[in-house]
Amino acid sequence: MNTFVTQLKREYWENRGGFFRAPMVVIGVVVLITIMGLTVGQFSVGSHIQMMGVPLTKAINSMPADKLQKVAEGINLGLAGMSMLVQFALGIVLFFYLIGCLFDERKDRSVLFWKSMPVSDVQTVLTKIVAATLLAPAIAWAAGILLHLLMLAVIGGFFWINDVSPMKLLWGPAEPLKLWGVMLAGIPVNAIWALPSIGWLMLVSSWARGKPFLWAVFVPVIAGILLTWFDALSSLSIPDTWYWKEVFARGLFSIFPWTFDASGAFRFGLEFSKDSTPSDVVSLKSLWMVLTMMKTWLGAAAGIAMIAGAVYFRRYRELSD
């Protein structure tokens, strides 16, 4: 247990920049832009903000219940969107973390130091997976909460200056607790969903003698192009769209959290449409959907097989001098 904790700490020390500073930078930028926007708004429009020709204060105070309901939906959508910003940054960090995690140590030869310690290769690889699926997401989760609190405070303050009750318009209708709960529940589900990507990136990281990024990206791209050609040239119908969606996209990019949407389809990046808004994606319903899909588990099995491959290479790959 002590070994595991120490190994995890070591991952954090090495990747403090990605695991901790990156989400903090995202928060800083979002809050700063908001403050700047509100300041400009305050000076140029001042307290003359109106809603359908009525001064805002008055409009809010006489707002009917169904309108307030809409406001609440808007606020919760905004909160979920803010979480997604942090999650997207987390995805980028994890992608590069996994590509480098078993390659960099061979490149700078520090693997000779790590291997002089009584830690097995399985332990090492598992620690890195835990760092990518629990440690970094937990930090990003906390960062998301911090972002929500700061934004609620900043915007609430702006309302308050303008004589609008933040309690009525913002803090009351907002439901951050529910969102935080779902985000937390999403961590293990995302981990399962991301297993193929984790496996592939770690496999390349432990295997490549150089340029792991190019290997990780171009092998699947070329495989896909070949499949598409076959498809076009022969009567054999290999479903290449299926490949791009289920193998290519999931294998490379499922490390981006919440990239499944409510309908269970994979979406590259975070594309939102009318039926899959951030608050639809970030829901217990969509998490449950992911867990009930066969392909989630098939992909996870493929991911575990590739992780076993990564362990093999970490153990037996010889360092070229």
Binding site: N2, T3, T6, K9, W13, S110, L112, F113, S116, M117
Partner: peptide, 25 residues
């Protein structure tokens, strides 16, 4: 073993290196 000179990871601090070895060895 010291298999080669200069194989300590470049990012590690003295304090961290000690804590690491203490934790795993």
């Amino acid at each position: 073993f010291i298999a080669d000179v200069a194989v300590l990871p470049r990012w590690i601090r003295v304090r961290e290196a000690i804590e690491y070895v203490e934790g795993v060895h």
